[in-house]
Amino acid sequence: MKVVETDIPEVLILEPKVFGDDRGFFYESYNERVFREATGLDVHFVQDNHSRSAKGVLRGLHYQIAQSQGKLVRCILGEIFDVAVDLRRNSANFGRWVGVCLSSENKHQIWIPPGFAHGFLVVSEVAEVLYKTTDYYAPQHERSIVWDDPDLSIGWPLTMAPLLAEKDRLGRRFAEAEVY
């Protein structure tokens, strides 16, 4: 596995070794020992989530103010633009974001540590996203920052108005959000 640092060093892109031929492909999508050796991180995942979304669906920016979740995200069908926003008040990158393309074609994953908001935009006709989390979903602690917050100025690759859930439409502005 190749590990690529982003502009926020704690957010990592993981590029697996893919073995393919005319029959198809195989790759190890997660191996705790390899992950630890490649990243230097000793994390324990407790939950796997799977979502399917149509083109133009924008999910996020989500986080849990307590029971903060680290996430290992990959797209197994289609393509998404995946975003992590640093919400750690004492971080040199507080309020900065990184975005990466995750697709079934490139098979990349992104590690988003606890203390970040997460969101993604579906850019293909449909996308399925799998992600592991380091803590359990706790709806009482879930928070949302509006996707188009002018203080964040995220460069979403929009080709149409995004399709949003009500909770995302009602998210807080970054300046008013609870942070870590």
Rank of each mutant, 00 (worst) to 15 (best):
residue 96 R to E: 13
residue 123 V to G: 01
residue 128 E to Q: 05
residue 5 E to F: 08
residue 113 P to A: 01
residue 112 I to T: 09
residue 88 R to E: 07
residue 128 E to F: 01
residue 21 D to C: 02
residue 14 L to H: 03
residue 96 R to W: 05
residue 143 R to G: 02
residue 127 A to C: 02
residue 152 L to I: 10
residue 163 L to R: 15
residue 89 R to I: 12
residue 40 G to V: 09
residue 58 L to A: 08
residue 75 C to H: 07
residue 29 S to Q: 10
residue 60 G to P: 04
residue 122 V to D: 04
residue 137 Y to A: 03
residue 46 V to F: 06
residue 142 E to K: 05
residue 148 D to R: 12
residue 35 F to G: 08
residue 32 E to M: 11
residue 35 F to S: 04
residue 111 W to D: 08
residue 73 V to A: 04
residue 70 G to C: 04
residue 84 A to I: 09
residue 30 Y to P: 03
residue 79 E to W: 11
residue 164 L to H: 05
residue 141 H to P: 01
residue 57 V to T: 07
residue 118 H to L: 03
residue 43 V to T: 03
residue 135 D to A: 13
residue 83 V to W: 07
residue 6 T to K: 11
residue 109 Q to D: 08
residue 19 F to P: 09
residue 156 W to D: 11
residue 20 G to I: 06
residue 24 G to P: 01
residue 58 L to Y: 06
residue 158 L to N: 06
residue 153 S to C: 13
residue 4 V to F: 14
residue 145 I to D: 00
residue 9 P to D: 11
residue 129 V to S: 01
residue 130 L to P: 09
residue 146 V to L: 12
residue 147 W to N: 12
residue 37 E to A: 08
residue 39 T to L: 03
residue 127 A to Q: 00
residue 123 V to K: 06
residue 76 I to S: 12
residue 140 Q to P: 04
residue 83 V to M: 03
residue 70 G to V: 07
residue 95 G to F: 13
residue 17 K to A: 13
residue 73 V to G: 00
residue 44 H to G: 13
residue 14 L to C: 04
residue 13 I to M: 12
residue 51 S to T: 04
residue 73 V to Y: 00
residue 81 F to E: 07
residue 62 H to P: 07
residue 172 R to A: 15
residue 174 F to V: 08
residue 77 L to R: 14
residue 1 M to I: 05
residue 30 Y to N: 10
residue 108 H to F: 14
residue 113 P to G: 02
residue 104 S to I: 09
residue 82 D to Q: 11
residue 13 I to Q: 13
residue 33 R to C: 07
residue 6 T to W: 08
residue 117 A to H: 04
residue 155 G to M: 13
residue 83 V to G: 09
residue 177 A to P: 03
residue 169 R to F: 13
residue 175 A to Q: 14
residue 151 D to A: 15
residue 52 R to D: 07
residue 125 E to Y: 06
residue 115 G to P: 04
residue 95 G to Y: 13
residue 87 L to K: 01
residue 169 R to G: 09
residue 108 H to Q: 15
residue 51 S to R: 07
residue 164 L to Q: 06
residue 7 D to A: 15
